[in-house]
Amino acid sequence: MPRLVGRRLLAALPVLFIVSLLTFGVTLLVPGDPAVTLAGENATPEQVDQTRERLGLNDPIYVQYGRWLGGALQGDLGESLYDQRPVVDSILERVPVTFGLAVLAVLFAAALAIPSGVISATRRGSIWDRAITLVSSAGVAIPNYFLGMLLILLFAFGLGWLPAVGYVPFTESPGDWFLHLLLPALCLGVAGWAEITRQIRSAMIQELEQDYARTATAKGLRRRAVIFKHAAKNASVPAITVTGLQVAYLFGGTVIIERMFGIPGLGQFAISAVYVRDIPVIQGVVIVATVVVIVTNLIVDTLYPLLNPKVRPA
């Protein structure tokens, strides 16, 4: 096991290196003189020179990259051009907010996807299967923010059960925290739910057609036992992979959902930085989000052999 983890980590290194290269390269995309853009619209020539000096833009590009990477490895992602605060501090402040939202979204998605996937696989072609397939197709197609607006209209404006926007930290009041995150997490989780449901459905159908499932049924095992003890265990492997892959999309989703619902998380932070073109902040968020995605995939890859001995290396 430790050897496997080591090998995966080693394989992730070149990817991480290129990710850092590309993230740093964002600065190079800024058209014209980056110092002019980065100093802001109303900067005087002196301020532009200062910016150039401060950011070391006179140095050769590889020196700039080396400095940036060196900093990043030590947890220094530079300062915001907007409020001069260290990017890392601002990110760390917001991570718990986004983390809570994302965990709730994944929990919703998985908790709903397991029954819906199993039901549609075991009753293939039934009205339930059709309904679930239809709703999950719609779930992938509907923009989550549109769904968010509909839910706000219904639950906040119409029924008045839930707050429309805003955020309360968990440490202040767990109940209010949950109520404020309920709608956003639902919106965020819908696409994941649809994706995981589809995956569970097709994996379960495949497993139930296998010889071992037929044997289990033939030797008189109850259907429930065949489904949950045998098929579900094997079908869970691809389902977990898909759940892991959802994390990348979740990060994108939080940007819009946090902005819409006024949740002060990483996504909201990123989008405000884009408006003022605060490149160091963007780079910081990009690198943190991407590393989280890579680590998640690494964890999923490592879980794989635990669940499915067939792929366990000899």
Binding site: V15, V19, L22, T23, V26, T27, L29, V30, P31, A248, Y249, L250, F251, G252, G253, V255, I256, A270, I271, A273, V274, R277, D278, I279, I282, Q283, V285, V286, A289, T290, V293, I294, N297
Partner: peptide, 16 residues
């Protein structure tokens, strides 16, 4: 491995 929307945000932030 970049989250798609996050990568788009970065590119749009740089290019305008």
């Amino acid at each position: 491995s970049f989250p798609p929307l996050v990568m788009m945000l970065a590119i749009v932030a740089a290019l305008g």
